[in-house]
Structures are given as C-alpha cells and as structure tokens.
Amino acid sequence: MAQRLATEYVNATLQMTEFQMNQFLLSADTSYISHRVKVLGGGEQEIVLEEAGGEEVHLSFERKGSIYVCKLSCRVVNPHLNNAVRKLFVTYKGTGTVNRIYKGFTMMYYYVAGSVRQISEITSSGSKLIYQHKHTAAEMLKMYHSNLVEEEIASLRRQVDRLLDARNDAGSLSRIAEIDGELSAAAARFFQLEA
C-alpha cells in the first residue's frame, strides 16, 4: 500500500461557533499535538497546532457574527498533525480541496460541507476521475418538492396577460409586432418549462 507523503488543504473553509471552537481546543491537545491561541484585532483569532517534532499548522479564524470562519491553505507532513487537521475539517463540515500526496501520484478530494463530492487521481500522465457524488434520495426529494418551475410559469402567465392587454391597446403596427415577438418568446419558454 502506498504511503502518504503529505496532505495539502487548498482554499478550504470551515465554520464553527465559539462553543465549538472551545470544544475543539479542549480536545486538540494530545501527547503529540499542542496548541497556542493568538487573539488578533477585530475578534479574529489564530490557532497554531504544533506537533512535538516542530511542524505547525496556522488556522486563521475570522469572526462573522456568532460564527468563526477559517480559511485553510496548508501542507501537512506529520501523521499526528494531519489526523488532527483532518478531524477538524470533517467534524466542522469543511469545504474545499484536499490533496493527498503519494510518491508518483496525488489523490484530489473535493469536499462540500464535510462530505466528499469528487475524487480524482492526478499523475504525470494526466487526471482520472475515481468517484463523483450522485444525488441522494434526500436531494432528489428536495428537487421534487421544489416549486420554482411552477412559480416561473405563474409569473410567465401574468406577463402574457399584460402583453395581451398591451396588444389590445396598441395603436401602431410596429408596437403590435414588438408585442407579438415578446409573446412568441413567452410561448417558447412555456414549452421549455412544461417539459
């Protein structure tokens, strides 16, 4: 089995409340990992996770209301530190790209809200899609219950009614032709929505 050389977090973000941040800090210290907290201006905080061997990860948190948002871009080599960052990323539903680097290839994981949506294998010869998220039953049910199309159809009907009233009141043939063009476009959109 291939041994992982490093893990990269690329433009990743995660969110947590102040309570969740305090819980994370209580669980962050282990026999291998320690942490420091730096309080910056404007309610921002930087948490530094440090491995016993000296490797560090800097997590910058910006306060937005009652939520702390962390933007994470780093490369982690140490397995203990990698495990701590991975748990943080998954527990607090991170979004972004995570590259797991092995000798000769890289596995690129794309996360949305803590779940893997796509996995690709990157080699010197190119990229190969390994996995892509398919819609779950809950997502399909949500799409089924969505009434956006019905709302657009109702709006389109109101628009057609206004156009027909305007056509009846139009005095010139050029205005009637213009309205007929708009009615034709509305009819085409009706057919698209009905499909």
Results as ranks from 00 to 15, higher is better:
V112N: 06
V57L: 13
T97K: 09
F105E: 10
R117M: 15
E62I: 11
V69M: 05
Y92V: 01
V37N: 04
E62N: 07
M107C: 09
R36P: 02
F61C: 00
G53E: 13
G41Y: 14
I67S: 00
Y68K: 02
A52S: 15
L40A: 10
S60R: 08
H35S: 09
G43Y: 06
E55Y: 07
R63N: 10
G65K: 04
V98G: 07
V90L: 10
N78I: 09
N82Y: 09
Y109C: 12
K38L: 12
L59I: 08
E46Y: 04
V76R: 09
G54S: 08
T91V: 05
V85H: 05
E46C: 10
R75M: 11
L49N: 00
I67Y: 00
V98R: 09
E46A: 11
V85N: 00
G54H: 03
L40V: 02
G104A: 11
E51G: 09
H35V: 00
P79L: 15
G54P: 03
E50T: 12
G41M: 09
F89G: 02
V76S: 05
M107K: 04
C70S: 05
I101L: 13
M108F: 02
I101T: 06
T106E: 14
T97S: 08
R117A: 06
V90C: 03
